[in-house]
Amino acid sequence: MDEPRVVARRSAPPRARRVGDRRPRGHALSQGFHRGARVTRDLPRPREWLAGAAPYRTESQAAEVRLQSNESTESAPLGRYLRQADLEGTLLNRYPDITAADLRTLLARRWEVTPEQVILGNGSNEVLLYTFLIFGGSDRTLLVFTPTYTMYARLARLTGMRVHEERVGVPYSLDVARVRGAVARVRPDVVCFSSPNNPTGNLLDDATILAAADAGSILVLVDEAYAEFSGHTLLPRIADHPNVVVVRTLSKAHAAAGLRLGALVADRRLAAMYEAARLPYNVGTLTQLVGRRIVADDAGLAERVSCIIGERTRVERELHRMPELDAFPSAANFILFRPRMMRGRALHTELVERGVLVRDVSSWPDAGESLRATIGNPTENDRLLDALRAVLAERSR
């Protein structure tokens, strides 16, 4: 729903100073600070939304099987991509190539675009942030279809935008008519889609996404973090829809979440705007070097994706055999499921007690009592399935 406008509060009158208090006015460390109290009276006030915002966190409980973050669970040590000569030839006293020309060229060839169309970031969240720095602002509106990746709304609010959450729910059924109706009613400046959608996993039709792009001068962002697992991309449609930008990452299928490397592909005119907003030297020397090696490893990528798709099919089949669960089709490296006889949080807790950590997305807008599990290796997936069977059997007694 739309964000309400908040009337700014007037500043409180200055307090009387104690005798002998020689600190300058506005000093941040008031006496309450030394007593361990949370003091904000003497601090500069942030914008209203940020004053009450909590840091973005993912679940970090200890667990033997960690299937909560949609990472690749395959071990990918740095030594796989470095050679002995790199240790002497990679100089850290010099700034990296500010344009990351070699890496951008390599990615452009993979995606059949020009290097000028590729904007790199320290993870895909950085290029998402640039989107809202460029096209956001207090007089502008973001439209999202929930449940979806929560960082879109978070970054929009961070830049002062209004956020309209069009409630779709689970199952996540979105079509051309729904998108056209929402765009006509909300009149957004930016529309964000995740395809395959996080957390539901389903792939959106091109026509559904392009219905927003065809509505006028709206920036349409398509987050394809999981595109390799779906075998589909909207990248070729940028040529005839220049208001569409596509975001990709090396964190998922490329098994490089720790590297922090993402990219955005845009029409060259929009790309120039992103390049103007991009921080200098935002992709480090080591990241560029390792990124090139990872992107060039076509065989490793193909084998990894094939294994995950095979395991996804098996896990999906086993979940459908559990009558106490609703499991939803996925084109990503995770599966969303919902218990019928207990709360999502309760099921999450019992899985953790059995050493399996998944993502509780029941707090995400319109996700319902749902949990999301990353597809791991066969042993990890068996642990998840066995834990689910044990919990559900106990609840059925």
Rank of each mutant, 00 (worst) to 15 (best):
G262M: 08
A256W: 07
A276Q: 15
P242C: 06
E275H: 15
R237A: 05
L250Q: 12
M273H: 04
L259A: 08
H232E: 03
L259C: 04
S251D: 12
A239M: 03
A263H: 01
H232V: 10
L289W: 08
T287P: 01
R268T: 14
T287A: 15
V245A: 05
R269V: 11
V246K: 01
L234T: 02
R278E: 12
S251G: 09
T249D: 05
R269K: 14
T285G: 00
A255W: 08
A256M: 13
T285P: 01
A255C: 13
I238A: 09
R260F: 08
L234P: 02
G284A: 08
D267A: 13
N282S: 15
A239H: 06
P242R: 12
L261Y: 14
G284C: 10
L279R: 15
Y274E: 04
A256G: 12
S251A: 15
L259G: 04
F229W: 10
L286N: 02
L250F: 12
Q288N: 15
L261C: 09
S251V: 03
T285L: 00
D240H: 11
L250A: 03
L235Y: 07
A277P: 06
K252V: 04
V283C: 04
A253E: 03
A271S: 10
H232Q: 14
L261K: 06
Y281V: 06
H254C: 10
R268W: 10
L235D: 04
V283D: 05
R269M: 06
A266E: 01
D240N: 12
H241L: 05
A272R: 13
F229C: 05
V245C: 06
A266Y: 09
